[in-house]
């Protein structure tokens, strides 16, 4: 039922777009769904869509892994070490409040205009989101839980693998989920600033030629890419947290 309504809504919106755009003389600004689809198919046929999407996926993906990995590591380390986190806290806050996209020009100076710069820009953005979530997750572990394991003679290694990491993983995934669009932001902003490939490049190139349909086609490709990345995360989340599924199926008692 919901699906039918959703499809109906999509059809209504696309039809309105298709007919109102020429009627209101707006084709130059918003194009039409048909022209966008044609442009999209044309890009896909020529293979350039796949090429550009591949570049962006690579940048966002590597940035995501790098930033996510570093964020988790730092989150666990600082989460378990109160002195270290107290000392670093003001520095991290200062750095966190900086809009990371503003680092783009600096990263070009440091790393050139190649793939590295986009990967690192994406990684920097992802790092903070994942770090903060992991940190929070590690800090939220119940002290009673830890005390009970300590009474079982648990060492820090046991605490980490048996309690802290599994209980923080819910938070880590919340962070990773939030990070997907931001990894794309990092990669695409990097491409828009300086590049000759990637979906961000395709976007700014089409726009600079006043090719509205091509611009929308590039945006559509970015949306599809984000959806695919989210789906991958969904699947791995379900794999890693089977107890959450059983939780969802249980009888609730209010």
């Amino acid at each position: 039922m919901v699906l039918v309504l959703q499809l109906a809504l999509a059809v209504v919106l696309l039809t309105a777009w298709q007919f109102l755009s020429p009627a209101l003389d707006m084709v130059f600004f918003i194009s039409t769904p048909q022209a966008i689809a044609e442009s999209f198919i044309g890009l896909a046929r020529s293979g350039s869509l796949l090429f550009h999407a591949g570049i962006t996926t690579l940048e966002a993906g590597l940035g995501f892994l790098l930033g996510g990995g570093a964020g988790m590591f730092a989150g666990v380390l600082l989460g378990r070490n109160k002195l270290l986190s107290d000392v670093l806290q003001p520095f991290l806050t200062a750095f966190y409040s900086l809009p990371k996209a503003a680092l783009g020009p600096l990263f070009i100076l440091w790393f050139g205009i190649g793939l590295n710069m986009k990967i690192l820009l994406a990684a920097t953005i992802v790092f903070f989101i994942v770090f903060l979530n992991t940190f929070r997750g590690v800090r939220e572990v119940s002290p009673e839980q830890i005390a009970i394991l300590r009474l079982m003679n648990a060492k820090e290694r046991h605490l980490l693998t048996k309690v802290i990491l599994p209980s923080a993983i819910v938070w880590v995934f919340a962070g990773l989920r939030l990070s997907v669009p931001y990894a794309l932001i990092g990669a695409i902003v990097g491409e828009i600033i300086a590049s000759n490939r990637g979906l961000g490049y395709l976007l700014s190139y089409s726009a600079s030629r006043f090719d509205t349909a091509g611009t929308f086609a590039a945006l559509g490709a970015i949306v599809i890419l984000a959806l695919i990345l989210n789906k991958i995360l969904d699947i791995s989340e379900r794999r890693l947290m089977p107890w959450r599924v059983s939780d969802a199926g249980r009888e609730i008692v209010v």
Binding site: S142, E144, Q145, A147, I148, L151, M152, K162, V163, P166, S167, I169, M241, W243, D247
Partner: peptide, 14 residues
Amino acid sequence: TGYMTQVDHLLPWR
């Protein structure tokens, strides 16, 4: 010594 409290503190992911 071993502890048991009102909250069972079982690990939900196991």
